[in-house]
Every structure is written in C-alpha cells, then in structure tokens.
Design a protein around this nucleic acid. Structure first.
Lengths: 159, 159
DNA sequence: GGGCTGGCTTGCATATGCAGAAGTCAGCAC
DNA sequence: GTGCTGACTTCTGCATATGCAAGCCAGCCC
C-alpha cells in the first residue's frame, strides 16, 4: 500500500476536504453555535445568551449556516403567541457531532479548567463516557496514528 | 441518568472545552498547518508552499502554535548544511488527529469535489479506510447521537 | 390602536487575518 | 569575505469579524 506522505510534493492540496470543511465551520462562533444546536438550542435569543456572542454577529452567523445547509428555519407557534421561526439542525449539521466531540475530548485533555470538564457525553444505553476514536472499516481501532494516506479518486498529481 | 439538555439554562458554558479548543485551533490556517504537520511536513518553506498561505501569516501562526504547545522547534543539521530548525508535532498536537480526521470525513461527505476526495486515510495493518466514530468506554459504538449530557466536575450551576 | 416582546437590522469603532513585496540574518561553501 | 539559501521580519493595505448601542418591525394582547 502506497503512502502518499512519502512524496508529499507529488500531489497537491487544492482538492482538500479539510479546507472545505473549515470554509464552512471554521470560525469559533460557528462551532459554538453548533455546540449549542447539538445541545438542543433552537431559538435566536437562546443562541445569543448561551453562546455569548452579540446579536449582530449571531444573525450573520445563523444566516451563513442556513445558506451552508447546517440549519433550517422552521416556523412554529406557541399557543397565544404569534408565529416564530426556530433553527433546527439538518442531517448535514447533525453529522458534525463527531467533530465537536473530538474537539471537546481534546479540550478536556489539553485545555481543561483546573476543576475539570464541565460536561461529559455519555452513552444513553450504558452511561459510559463517549469519545471520538479512529476506527477502520474492518472494525479495528487505530491506536498510535497507525495509518497510511492513500490516493482517492479526486487526487491531483503533479510533476 | 440526568440529561443536562433538559434544562440548558441551569448551567453555564463558561467552562467549555470546545471553546477553549477553538481558541487554540480555531482558525482555518492553524487547522491546515495541522493537516500538513500530520502528513509529515516539518519545515517552514514546505508549510508555506503546501498550505498555500503567505510567509508572514505562516510565521505568525507557527509562533502561536509553538506557544500553544502543538509544535516544538527542533534543531537539525543536514550534512554540509548549517544548523536549522524544524517544527515537530508534540503529543498535544498529534492528538488532534481525531479532530482533523472527523473534519476530513465530514468534508468528504458534505463538501466534496465532484471527483471525490483526494486522499483517504487507511489502516496500516489491513488497508481499510479509517473514520472518526463515537464510541463509549464500554466499547459500544454510538449510532444516532444516542447520548446524554452529564455533569462533569467542572460544571457551573446557576439559578 | 397602543404597548409589549422576540427577533432581528443598522451604524460605528476596533481588532484580527492575510496578501504581496521587500528587507534582514545566520552561517556554510568557496 | 562574499555569495547563497532557508527562514524569517517589516511594511503597507485591504477585508472580515466582533462588540456595543440603538432602532425597526410584526403581530398578539388588551
């Protein structure tokens, strides 16, 4: 199996999924909004208060995230209230959970408060803490970065 | 098992590992430098060329990352050359691999080029593709976000 | 039809990030 | 001691992100 790290300059990073993902969720506030959305927050004011960002910034970020398809705007109506809109995660947005979880794990280990982490994700069925881990399609868990980098269909080779 | 999502306003996000992680690795260029570092890049010029960022920005980012402890500056000497320095990942930096992998997975699925992903991480032992997945300490794989949010030692309650 | 409230928008000032071009510096080769 | 090269630093200028304060608007209540 070829490992592309051995000749890094033989292929370019123009087509890079990491870069494209960062173009969409690469800012601090977008990630914190995702954190809150994954915790169940759906309303504008709650996002503003819980994320700790100003209203103008929040409105701009939510607009970007709607355009990116991470959230969708759903009308709802509480009894005796007028129609409002809430922001619900799309599948595209929900699937960022491993990213947020990996970030939280890393932060818990390397940037935690002296008191320790404030929250822990646990498995609903068994109550054990949940972590983002690397696993191959054959089911093996990857331990010390025991991976190769192989070419995908969209690779761009160069001289 | 209590689920903190049920009363989100009973605890604050001041002590948030996600936010702290984003303070360190929250910019696009930092993540792309991590991508390259995890692919084996160690020298300034290579980082500049492969990440596609200007020299001043790269110098600033690398300085931040040294200060954050993601990289360390190691002197080396090629025969017939003067002493130089290269940037090696620390353990703290290497452990961002699940974050980068989760981002790459997500980008491959939701923001890929028509041609498909350019590279795929594969398990060195078996050659199967590697993904970041959620797993609990008891070994169960988490499927549809089947998690609760429990209090950690550093939680900050409020009225 | 006037007030209230949630959900924004506008305006202004500041801070950070990045590109591009050019200059600096260290030290081995010669 | 001069040239060369990798590794930066400096300078200028623009674009984006964010904070704060204030204003606007829709529509249900009364």
């Amino acid at each position: 199996m070829e490992d592309l790290r051995e000749d890094r300059d033989s292929w370019s990073s123009e087509n890079c999924s990491v870069a494209r993902a960062m173009d969409i969720v690469g800012s601090r506030s977008t990630v914190l909004i995702m954190r809150e959305a994954l915790l169940g927050t759906r309303r504008f004011d709650d996002f503003v208060r819980r994320v700790g960002v100003g209203e103008p910034a929040m409105a701009a970020r939510l607009k970007d995230m709607l355009a990116a398809g991470l959230l969708e705007r759903i009308p709802y109506r509480e009894p005796g209230q007028r129609t409002r809109h809430e922001y619900q995660l799309t599948r595209k947005g929900r699937e960022l959970l491993p990213v947020i979880t990996a970030l939280r794990n890393w932060g818990d280990t390397w940037a935690a408060d002296d008191a320790g982490p404030s929250v822990v994700a646990t498995h609903h069925d068994c109550g054990e803490p949940v972590r983002a881990v690397l696993r191959c399609a054959a089911g093996h868990e990857i331990t010390d970065g025991d991976i190769d980098i192989a070419a995908g269909p969209g690779i761009i080779r160069r001289a």
